[in-house]
Design a binder for these strands. Structure first.
Lengths: 155, 155
DNA sequence: CGGGGGAGGTTCGTCAAGTGAACCCAGCGT
DNA sequence: ACGCTGGGTTCACTTGACGAACCTCCCCCG
């Protein structure tokens, strides 16, 4: 098991999960990608308890994934909305990955509830593993994982 | 907000998170992709409480993401190991997506702790959004989400 | 100026989930 | 017969999620 021995404590998967892995966080982001920006709308769509939602939004703002933007609709008092930052937008593939797997294995009626299309050409979009040579890989089997940690063992 | 109104209750993101979104589940899978197969090794690598680990492994087996395979090392009694099924292998992009984001935004020293390379050609592998026309998209902004639900509103 | 109402929270009691340590059982080696 | 190891289970405790109630700010209506 060559790969079974490197320092897991600073693994990026664990790190990312520490940031967005709590309950509701990724669902909040899903809503954000769907255009939701206001507290009440998040709450309506998700049905999450307000206290939890407050906490999650706060954490995501702290982490620089969302930012609070004040705005004022005419005839209303000033409010603020939550918008994705660049850092937040980069979580899109994560959500797409979750969605794609769910579409494949959980779709009750075989029809995914949401489909993604290329804004320019209109054809369906999917997430794929590609290498820098341009080859499209078929899955985990085509990948070789190389630890870069403060290596050991052989010395 | 055109996309803000479809039936979220059967969203694939939520569905997938219901299956693998609990604490430790995705980390268990990370280990599985790194070749870990035995209970004690999962426990050692993750440091998760045994009770939780038992539960997560059980759930993942129930869900058909892992399967228990009996095996016998020589001079030892029969044991079983946990192996990824095809359904489990298909979660690879999800983990890669989490990893890629963490590599970009959380790597303390700028060096990701693990890099992936194409087994055939050796060049680095990354996850990308592509459309069926072959265009590589740059991010969420290039995607248009189309709900397929039992549509409403206009009637 | 007084009151209603909605956005955006906070507080509280309850209940589920995660945590770590201790314990248990089956089988192999001696 | 006895202990060691893998693979768990049980238990007491702490943390987190939940839902309902409440609170505040400020715009609008009267």
């Amino acid at each position: 098991m060559s790969n079974a021995s490197w320092d897991r404590s600073r693994c990026s998967v664990a790190g990312t999960l520490a940031v967005v892995g709590e309950k509701w966080s990724l669902l909040v982001l899903r809503e954000a990608f769907l255009g939701v920006r206001r507290f009440a709308d998040f709450q309506r769509q998700l049905g999450a308890p307000k206290a939890v939602l407050t906490d999650r939004l706060g954490t995501l703002v702290e982490q620089g994934i969302l930012r609070r933007v004040p705005y004022q609709a005419e005839g209303e008092r000033q409010r603020h909305e939550y918008r994705l930052t660049a850092k937040g937008l980069d979580l899109y593939p994560t959500l797409v990955a979750l969605m794609q797997w769910g579409d494949r294995y959980l779709a009750d009626d075989g029809v995914p509830p949401l489909s993604l299309e290329h804004r320019d050409c209109g054809s369906p979009v999917h997430l794929g593993l590609v290498c820098d040579e341009g080859h499209e890989l078929t899955g985990a089997r085509d990948v070789h994982a190389v630890p870069r940690s403060t290596a050991v063992t052989s010395g």
